[in-house]
């Protein structure tokens, strides 16, 4: 593309002192602001303020604020979180703190004992929700969270973070149903795999039993022949 084609020169504007009628521009401006003032009473795209809290703005389902943890059936046992610490490592301002729950032998229970998010540090970026491989952490749309407790009130623990899958479904139906379908498919796959494993185990057992029976039969047959031979 030639350089000349891209050029779009500004039009010349008369310098101060050469105006035909000083003040005309000011009057024109006043007319425009008067028009705007009157239209702000009836024209919809010029009425921008709403009377919060009586009126509420419609918030997009994609709006994200602070994270929450999703659980399936029961808040205590149904948490999807496995305390893998991926979100803790990826969190840009490092506002997530996770402690893995272990039993008395030190074996991992694959669930968090402590899961804290300091929302005075959280920058609402949504990276934790993005990197979570267990469909556990999502961004909430809750925005009325003011508190007079600067420290405890802004430190969300498991009790305040855990929210049900139904809540997620209500918040973002599209995303939640996709996740549910994916989880269901995974569960079915798992169940199918377990069934296949069980069937295989059963088949193995049967084969073993058959082999044992055959071996026994052969042994018996051999014994019989031996007996026969002896008697002969």
């Amino acid at each position: 593309m030639s350089a000349e084609k891209t050029i779009d020169r500004l039009p010349a504007v008369p310098k101060p002192g050469r105006w035909i009628m000083p003040g005309l521009g000011l009057i024109q401006g006043l007319v425009i602001s008067g028009k705007n003032a009157i239209q702000s009473y009836y024209k919809k795209d010029r009425m921008t303020t709403i009377q919060y809290p009586e009126q509420r703005a419609v918030i997009s389902p994609n709006f994200r604020n602070f994270p929450f943890l999703c659980y399936d059936d029961d808040a205590a046992t149904g948490l999807r979180c496995t305390a893998c610490s991926i979100c803790e490592n990826e969190c840009p301002p490092q506002c997530i703190y996770i402690v893995l729950d272990r039993d008395e032998n030190g074996k991992s229970l694959k669930r968090p004992k402590v899961f804290d998010i300091d929302i005075s540090v959280c920058m609402n970026c949504g990276i934790c929700a993005e990197v979570c491989p267990f469909d556990s952490i999502y961004m909430d749309g809750e925005y009325e969270m003011s508190t007079d407790d600067r420290f405890g009130g802004l430190m969300l623990g498991l009790d305040r973070l855990a929210k049900s899958a139904e809540y997620h479904m209500k918040l973002r139906p599209e995303e939640a149903s996709a996740v549910m379908a994916k989880r269901k498919a995974e569960e079915e796959k798992k169940a199918a795999a377990a069934a296949a494993k069980a069937a295989k185990a059963k088949a193995d057992l049967e084969a073993k039993a058959k082999a044992a029976a055959e071996a026994k039969a052969a042994e018996e047959a051999q014994a019989a022949t031996e007996e026969k031979g002896e008697s002969a």
């Binding site: 504007v13 310098k15 101060p16 105006w19 000083p22 003040g23 005309l24 521009g25 000011l26 024109q28 401006g29 425009i32 602001s33």
Partner: peptide
Amino acid sequence: ELEKFLVGNEILLARTQ
């Protein structure tokens, strides 16, 4: 509208040119 509102304004012209 915004251009009309601002650009003809003599005060703006006097202060920016």
